[in-house]
């Protein structure tokens, strides 16, 4: 595989200046009280024995052109939230308003038409690509499914999409196994862009890539966002990556959002004890700096989402927990302009 097909030169970086975000009033995605339970069954009769409370009363909005980061430990419900927004799961309750239409109440042909505006980019570029299809077929498939282009127009669009993600249009006839991980992720992005979406859920889209390739893909996603005014829900467990690309970040724990604010604010002034411990655990790639940081190591594992603790879901691991935390569920409270957190002890910490 040749080198010239990917990558930008070191000098050709997007600017580090804070970008101009679309107005917050122009809401593209409005998630209200979203709940998703997965029933757990047992025995030959598949009797229901309980629920995995994967997403449990989650609300947030994403402005048009905005990138919202979603972080939290493995199993906290990030993927489920993303898939519920895209209606890839039947939502248990709540609403997902997209462009003023509640997707939860939308069915059949109308939902299919709405779907065109929303795309998903997966973590694993290997698993999400059909090995028997050529790169061109993979990227072009949505064009055929949504009857957007055929014939010459189709071929031109595929070539255009490949160059958008900085791949040589000549690679259209190759198969997925002939591409590297980073190039496969570019194919996944080109496919998502095929239908001119407004909104893309990036679910661990760069997590499987090593740092240098990860930087190439992040740079690409940032460039495309400016070019097509895209709105992203950017799901990842790497907090440093999320900070780079997000305007705002939501932190999830056991199916609930515990803190949400601008990405600069979250990193400069985290308020929820869970966010604070999560940030403190991130190693800094500089041994001198890393040694001087205070680390809060959380004891124990994340409780089972089948049987979440009462009161504040975080109280079993919270270094500061008091009696009220064990008995009462904390509400989301305003900490500052555009900064919300759910913790009983916000004033004390």
């Amino acid at each position: 595989m040749s080198d010239e097909s990917t990558g930008t030169a070191v000098s050709d970086q997007p600017s580090d200046a804070p970008r101009q975000r679309a107005s917050v009033e122009d809401v593209l995605v409005d998630v209200k009280n979203l709940v998703k339970y997965f029933p757990v069954t047992a025995g030959v009769l598949r009797r229901k024995v309980g629920d995995v409370k994967a997403v449990d009363d989650v609300s947030f909005t994403i402005g048009r052109g905005e990138t919202l980061g979603l972080v939290g430990e493995s199993g906290c419900g990030k993927t489920t939230t993303g898939r519920c927004i895209l209606q890839l799961y039947d939502v248990t309750s709540g609403s997902v308003v997209f462009n003023d239409v509640d997707l939860v109440q939308t069915k059949g042909e109308q939902l299919r038409r709405m779907r065109r505006h929303m795309q998903l980019i997966f973590q694993d570029p290997f698993a999400s690509l059909d090995p028997r299809m050529t790169a061109g077929d993979i990227i072009g498939e949505p064009l055929l499914v949504h009857k957007i282009a055929k014939g010459n127009e189709y071929r031109e669009r595929v070539a255009e999409l490949l160059s958008m993600v900085e791949l040589d249009p000549a690679v259209a006839s190759r198969y997925p196994h002939e591409f590297s991980g980073g190039q496969r992720q570019r194919l996944g992005i080109a496919r998502a862009l095929a239908v001119n979406p407004d909104f893309i859920v990036c679910d661990e889209a760069v997590s499987a890539l090593d740092v240098s390739i990860q930087a190439q893909i992040i740079t690409l996603l940032m460039r495309l966002r400016e070019e097509f005014n895209l709105t992203y829900l950017f799901i990842a467990h790497d907090l440093a990556v999320v900070r780079n690309i997000s305007d705002r970040v939501a932190v999830m724990y056991l199916g609930k959002i515990v803190e949400i604010t601008t990405s600069d604010q979250l990193y400069a002034n985290p308020r929820h004890p869970y966010t604070i411990s999560l940030l403190s655990a991130v190693p800094i790639p500089d041994p001198v700096v890393d040694r001087t940081r205070e680390r809060i190591v959380l004891e124990g594992d994340v409780p089972s989402p089948m049987n979440p603790p009462g009161g504040c879901p975080f109280h079993t691991r919270c270094p500061q927990a008091t009696d009220i935390c064990r008995t009462q569920v904390p509400e989301m409270k305003k900490v500052d302009e555009g900064h919300m957190a759910s913790c009983h002890l916000l004033d004390a910490i």
Binding site: D3, V10, Q13, M222, R243, N244, D264
Partner: peptide
């Protein structure tokens, strides 16, 4: 926020 540098190729 600092945009990571990219090693080309």
């Amino acid at each position: 926020k600092v945009v990571p540098r990219v090693i080309p190729g």
